[in-house]
Structure formats: structure tokens, C-alpha cells
Amino acid sequence: MDAFTTHTGTAAPLRRTNVDTDQIIPAEYLKRITRTGFEDGLFVAWRTNEPDFVLNQPQYADASILVAGPDFGTGSSREHAVWALLDGGFRAVISSRFADIFRNNSTKAGLLTVVLPQDAVEALWAAVEADPTTQVTVDLEAKQVGYDDVTVAFDIDDYTRWRLLEGLDDVGLTERNLPDIEAFEAGRPSWLPHAQPVS
């Protein structure tokens, strides 16, 4: 994945709670077997059916930071939701609460998910609605979001931060611990099931 250090761009205010991954990308786009090219499915129902949808508004068309209501990314585990946001030009999503699987997926694909208190989200919504050209900086090194004269700190565990800053592949890191895996396997009970057909 691409490393994430710091990103500055404009932000789109998505004033909705419970944005599920079916809305981020509907199931019909999940039939593809590629890992890129999902931008056409990003929020496609809302983009098609709701003229006022935030990403249909020209002043937010080039936004690279999405600022959403609580419980963003609920529902299906589809990592395609993260890929679609990245393909659609987003580098970061800010919300007061993310669904666990979505957040986990985002850290594997290089999309930064930033948890801010809801009042900080509200203030950011107000700022980018008052001036859509507001430059918002998401700084992973300093663990803070900044715009105008506002700076808000956010928390992220050091390990995930380090992996994102370096753009590191999890599998490669785990493979360094192969001896531990082999040792664990040697101690597993023999009665645990195996998936091969039983004759």
C-alpha cells in the first residue's frame, strides 16, 4: 500500500449517520475481481438519485477528505468500500465512530480513518460548509487535523501509525515470525477439524 504521512486538501461534509458499506459501494460492483477501478460505484445510488448529495455539488467535487457522521462503514466487510473511496480520490475519512471492519480494512489499504469527537466533526462541517475551499490538513506524524486556525489532536495506536507511515505490508511483517507460528502449530490439539473431505 502507499505510505501516508500527511495530506492537505479540501473536505466534503457528509452529514449522515450510519453510512453503510452498501451505500459506499453496492453489491453489484463486488462481482469484479480487480482491486482498482471502483470509483464508478462510489456512493452511486446517492450520486444518481439525490441531486443535492454532497459529492454532486461542484464545490465538493474535488474533495479528498470525507467528513461523515457517526457509525461510518457499518455492515458488510467488503474492502471494496475502502478501495472505492481511494479510487474516488479520498485519502482520509473523519468521523466520530467507525465500524470496526471498515476501519481495519482502511489501515490495510492506506486510507486514513481519523476519529474525532462529534463536536470537532460538527465544527469541521460548519467550516467547510462556510468555505468549501478550506484547506484541511490531516497529519499522521503529528496526529492532528488542522484547518484555519484550528488544530485537533487524534489518537491512533503507534503500531498502525508506523505501518501507515512506512506503507508496510502486514504479511511481510508476520512472515518474520514464522518460527512462532510453527511452534504454535506443533501444540494444537489433534482433534481440531481439517477441511479435507472425510471418506
Binding site: 466487510s77 474492502e79 475502502v82 480494512n105 489499504a109 504479511v171 508476520t174 514464522l178
Partner: peptide, 30 residues
């Protein structure tokens, strides 16, 4: 698949993962 939690009915710790993690489990079983 997010509904992997179904298997918890047996007292298993069962949870859904994304495709990057699918690859990780395929490669390392961890």
C-alpha cells in the same frame, strides 16, 4: 464476510475480515 459472527453460537471466536486480511490468513494462518 461480516456474518462470520454466526459461528460464535458454538463458543467460537468468529469474525469477519476484509480482503487484505483474507490474503494475510491464506499466507500465514494468523
Amino acid at each position: 464476510d461480516s456474518h462470520t459472527s454466526t459461528h460464535g453460537a458454538f463458543g467460537a471466536l468468529a469474525f469477519g475480515i476484509g480482503t487484505s486480511e483474507v490474503e494475510h490468513v491464506l499466507a500465514t494462518q494468523t
